[in-house]
Design a protein around this nucleic acid. Structure first.
Length: 592
RNA sequence: GGUUCCGUAGCUCAGUUGGAUAGAGCAACUGCCUUCUAAGCAGUAGGUCUUUGGUUCGAAUCCAAACGGAAUCACCA
């Protein structure tokens, strides 16, 4: 049985039998003991002081005595100002560690399927820093859910149609001069993005011109010739005009080549792609369904709406008067399609928090329609990545490009490694793998350690750190252990021996074990809260506690029992670091 | 204006259902490489947890109000 539950049960029993209390409805909580005090678990007695009519310290004493008597794992307790701090035995830590070492699956057993939709790029421009946060979060949450026991479908809904796509197409048609990725040497997505920016530049010029001629800014935005040309192109695209479709296909192909190379570089992959060009007409049958059950209503102009005022939301348009669909219509259709395709019990959408309202509406509508999958819809809402200058805007070119940033990180990793003179015995290929691992590790960790919900600031002037609470710090800890293990192997030490349960632990050793044993609950927490950040915080703590141990406790030494234990402990730490970093999509090197 | 989210050290961030003296990293300063990798370890300094009220044994955390910031409230996606 779980030790925490055991202690809680025992506390409850003691309180009930000694003081004749009825605590059946009350839950006992146990907390980790603060670092400055001795002990592993702390029980706060204040809530029971009134009930038992005891003094805080007296109550703590009584309970402590009872625990020591009844729970064999507890060897002693200390009472500090009404806090009952419990110390556990060496034997407990060592047997738990042995169990931990042999456990492979820390999740739950379930056959539930989860779909995670993430990335979902527009095909008119390259990925930027904001997309990286999305991709890393999505990838990490997939890994966490898989480790926890779900089977996961990674989906990418590609935004490959709409007026914004036509903007790049118009600009290319006018000024492209048949430029191709090959002829320009540009990555496909960057080439297309160049024309997207070009469009906007011309568009702005036209707006300026028109406003000087006396039009209001709003009128000018609608009347600008180049904008009208884009609109007309969208109409031609929807009418399947061969020339337009051909251009669209050509440019999309370029973009996908670019995206694929970026995905490969950042180590992200997908099981299934949805394309908006295939799904944008979906959802109309759901509208029909809603009308028939009177969940939706029709206005005089034939537009279809739903009343969500009771849900605390507003009335929402679902179908225009002319019968064409809007964003929410498509999303309703796509939700249905996803469920038909994969029958997942949960459907996670990794989408920015600017769409919070949209997803509230989506879920509310699905619930009103009594869709079985409505409750499983979860919007994993994350904050924007802001620059010191404010929000990133692709159109204005004020973005941190994903490919550039990744390359910059790899270059920094290389420079840093050379500076430290650590590549002598690496082959060129090993070195380049290492720089990639370190650069990407620093970047992923940087973006994932922050609570997803919060918006975060990225300052391009200050490079991302490689010291302190960073990916490379944790990777370094792993590499150090790998080096120790290599030495042990050459000495012929067998690390698979069972751990001695009579070994007497030093403080640093015990603290490392305490950290390790938190892994299962941290995994559960991260899976439940969709929070890679809690894994990042956890693995940092593990690395820190190990580094403290590393500084204080020499591994190779005279005392063979101690040497073997420290080697075993190191190996388990390495495995846990590797496992945890993998949950973040970060690889760990054997040397650095 | 309505709704939602946010406000913690100079900077970037932790802080689980209310608990002890509010924690890390960066930047600054001081020690520690002839023994397993110093991308490390140990330490110093840095705080009115935006403000004010309330709830209680106890509040960064819960409630209310104010101030500041962001997003959203489109027949855009």
């Amino acid at each position: 049985m779980n030790i925490e539950i055991k202690i809680k049960n025992c506390l409850k029993e003691a309180l009930e039998s000694i003081y004749q209390l009825d605590l059946s409805n009350q839950s006992i909580t146990l907390e980790p003991t603060k670092k400055e005090f001795e002990g592993t678990y702390t029980f706060v007695v204040f809530p029971f002081v009134k009930l038992t009519k005891q003094s805080p310290d007296g109550l703590a004493q009584t309970l402590g005595n009872s625990l020591v008597k009844n729970v064999e794992e507890i060897i002693s307790f200390q009472v500090v100002k009404g806090f009952l701090n419990l110390s556990l035995s060496n034997r407990y830590f060592l047997t738990s560690l042995e169990t931990f070492r042999h456990t492979e699956n820390f999740g739950i057993s379930t056959n539930e399927k989860v779909m995670v939709e993430f990335s979902s790029p527009n095909t008119n421009k390259p990925l930027h820093l904001g997309h990286l946060r999305n991709n890393f979060l999505g990838d990490s949450i997939c890994r966490i859910l898989e480790a926890y026991g779900y089977s996961v479908v990674r989906a990418n809904l590609i935004n490959d149609r709409g007026i914004h796509i036509c903007k790049s197409m118009i600009a290319y048609e006018r000024w492209g001069n048949n430029e191709t990725p090959e002829s320009s040497g540009l990555k496909g997505d960057h080439l297309v993005g160049k024309y997207y920016v070009w469009f906007d530049k011309e568009y702005k010029k036209e707006i300026d011109q028109l406003t000087q001629n006396g039009l209001s800014e709003e009128e000018a935005k609608k009347e600008a010739p180049i904008f009208k040309a884009a609109q007309q192109m969208l109409v031609r695209w929807e009418a399947n005009d061969p020339e337009t479709v051909q251009l669209w296909k050509k440019m999309n192909t370029w973009v996908y080549q670019g995206f694929n190379s970026t995905y490969k570089k950042i180590g992200v992959h997908f099981d299934h792609f949805y394309y908006e060009s295939n799904t944008y007409l979906l959802g109309k049958d759901i509208v029909e369904e809603g009308l028939q059950t009177n969940t939706f209503y029709k206005k005089e102009d034939q537009s279809v709406w739903i009343d969500l005022t009771r849900e605390g939301l507003d009335h929402k348009l679902l179908l225009r008067g002319d019968g064409t669909s809007v964003y929410i219509t498509q999303d309703l259709g796509t939700a249905e399609l996803k469920f038909k395709d994969f029958a997942c019990s949960k459907s996670v959408y990794v989408v920015g928090n600017e769409q919070d309202y949209h997803f509230q509406v989506l879920q509310a509508i699905l619930k009103k329609l009594n869709k079985s999958y409505a409750d499983g819809v979860y919007h994993m809402s994350y904050g924007m990545v802001d620059l010191p200058s404010g929000k990133m805007k692709s159109r204005e070119g004020t973005v941190v490009d994903a490919d550039d940033l990744v390359q910059e990180m790899i270059d920094t990793a290389k420079a840093r490694t050379l500076e430290l003179g650590k590549v002598e015995d690496l082959s060129e290929e090993q070195a380049s793998i290492l720089f990639h691992q370190l650069g990407l590790g620093a970047l992923k960790y940087y973006l994932l350690r922050v609570d997803p919900k919060k918006r975060m600031l990225f300052n391009p002037e200050e490079s991302i750190d490689f010291q302190g609470n960073t990916g490379p710090f944790i990777q370094y800890t792993y590499a150090r252990i790998a080096s120790i293990i290599r030495k042990a192997n050459t000495m012929g030490v067998d690390l698979n021996d069972s751990i001695s349960i009579t070994y007497s632990l030093q403080v640093e050793e015990r603290q490392v074990i305490e950290e390790l044993l938190k892994y299962p609950s941290k995994l559960a927490e991260a899976a439940g809260a969709y929070a890679p950040s809690s894994i990042a915080a956890y693995v940092y703590d593990v690395a820190k506690s190990y580094n403290r141990f590393y500084a204080e406790c020499p591994v190779f030494q005279e005392n063979k029992e101690s040497q073997l234990f420290r080697l075993q402990l190191s190996a388990i730490v390495a495995k846990t670091i590797q496992r945890s970093m993998l949950l973040l999509g970060i690889e760990v090197p054997n040397k650095m």
